[in-house]
Design a protein around this nucleic acid. Structure first.
Lengths: 296, 296
DNA sequence: AGGAGCTATAGACCACGTCTATGATCAATT
DNA sequence: AATTGATCATAGACGTGGTCTATAGCTCCT
């Protein structure tokens, strides 16, 4: 089998029309080039160049070989450029899966600033439920999943993100509750708005109430955080919602937090990646970036 | 600069999905493959495969690299196949320059049998005068020129072909000359048909007559051997023509040779190639073939 | 005649690619 | 659980082959 290094030498010799120039381009000596070309000619049993005192020129057969090798070498050069671009994040893909609300309210600033730094990286955001996100990860359709903890799956490696605090909030319509401290039992007298059944937050709150011996049954179920906010503001009920996602509404007073006589347990954001599978460079840099920013 | 051998290893590893299988395909050991892939990954600073107990699979970046390298390697394979074809004359070009008459009356049987042996070789016959043929040779437009000797050109290497004997012939109209021996002076009394001015044969006969103190002026000048034959047969004059080209006519008696009191010097066919320029494989095999056949 | 290019050849050397041997891990058996 | 049989990774030794220097031979140009 022919050593492919010889084609590299052949390419430069043909391209420059000179073994000496090829040697310079390749940072080797002229005898090495001469030797390499000889090897190639010997292994084909065909003369590729004719030599004269000015340099070398391709024979008919040499031209034929060159027509193939040139394309091949250009492809390799392109490959090397592409790899360099991937390496310094001028190119690549970052595929993240997770819930819409986490993208919008938590990840967005990171994504914005990452994109600004690396505008060549294509961003794929794939929203879905936690099980869907895990499935996508395992199928290799996404590099990274961002969901609520806890996640227990031996195939996954999970890193903790920030802590979020869920709470019940209401709008002006329930102003009478503003400075009161409610028990769970009392809370359940009011219409409750919850996120749809298959979400992690919904499961968590259902379990929490069960552990206290109550069953929480929402009047309204919605599919997005925006609707949770909107419905609460319009006074249709009391929404269970992540406090960090409504800092604007709390500040401007269009929503207020309901004080309960028990502390709601915090929930944590988790970054999931596949265990024992190398991350794409774009993804690992993104995670690194989020980690460093979170710590500061 | 990256050793292109590594791409060969990468290609097989990616293609087979297994370092062990790649090793077998490449007739090296598995640790060598492992080492090579590692080198490639290190020099890019990018992980190309993830490894598991079943084998290896390309990462996202690995897939990108593979998309280039696959094409590149296929081109090289095609190149190697093509070179093998050129080597055993399944493919290639044979470009010969020379006079129409030599092609038809001398080279044709060789060309036929060469073509039969190597149907993949494209044949280019380029007819022209001797100076044109030499020019084509120097421009690299033909591999081989077949002309009348002598040729004196330091850039050319000339090999002798067969000897041809030119002679004067006539048809039935001049039957009275059949068994006579003519002097040059007497011959010149008859209408002479010669090949056109710029041919080598024409120059030779002109010089020959001059060396005896005569000037030969044709009644008719023609551009092809066929016309020389045809005109002589029709009785329009006495043609000066290569005896070997009219063996059929001499045998059947439609033409007969004029006996002269001097011996016409033989002329020799010459094969010209460029000195110090390697021949195409197709051409060198053809010359070899002609030489061997001629000797037998 | 001399010099400045070019490529070819010879021979020495040592880097690096390959090998063997072994370890680590995982999955599918027993 | 233990065993077997795959996989790839690692370590270290070995020896080939690619690269080097030095030099020759050639052609062209001054």
């Amino acid at each position: 089998m022919i050593n492919y290094e010889l084609y590299k030498v052949f390419y430069w010799a043909a391209k420059t029309g000179s073994l000496s120039k090829a040697a310079k381009s390749l940072y080797i000596t002229q005898p090495s080039v001469s030797h390499a070309i000889k090897q190639l000619e010997d292994s084909f049993g065909i003369t590729l160049f004719y030599r004269n005192s000015k340099g070398v020129a391709l024979t008919q057969e040499g031209v034929t070989l060159y027509s193939y090798i040139e394309k091949s070498q250009i492809l390799i050069s392109l490959a090397e450029e592409k790899m360099a671009a991937l390496k310094n994040l001028d190119s690549g893909e970052l595929r993240i899966g997770g819930s819409d609300s986490l993208f919008k309210h938590y990840l967005l600033p990171y994504l914005e600033s990452y994109r600004q730094k690396h505008p060549g990286i294509k961003l794929h955001l794939n929203h879905g439920t936690t099980p869907e996100t895990i499935a996508f990860l395992k199928e290799g359709k996404i590099d990274l999943g961002v969901v609520r903890m806890p996640i227990v799956d031996s195939q996954l490696e999970v890193m903790k993100g920030i802590e979020l605090q869920d709470c019940f909030v209401a709008g002006a319509h329930f102003a009478e509750l503003k400075d009161k401290v409610l028990s769970l039992e009392l809370l359940l007298q009011y219409p409750i708005i919850l996120f749809s059944r298959n979400s992690r937050v919904r499961m968590a709150i259902t379990e929490l109430f069960q552990s206290y011996g109550y069953q929480i049954k929402p009047e309204i179920e919605v599919g997005s955080v925006d609707l949770l906010i909107e419905f609460a503001r319009k006074g249709l009920g009391i929404s269970y919602i992540t406090k960090e996602f409504i800092s604007k509404e709390l500040e401007e007073g269009s929503l207020f937090e309901i004080n309960l006589d028990i502390k709601m347990p915090p929930s944590q954001v988790g970054f999931m990646i596949m265990r024992n599978m190398p991350l794409s460079h774009a993804a690992s840099k993104f995670i690194e970036f989020v980690k460093n920013t979170d710590e500061i």
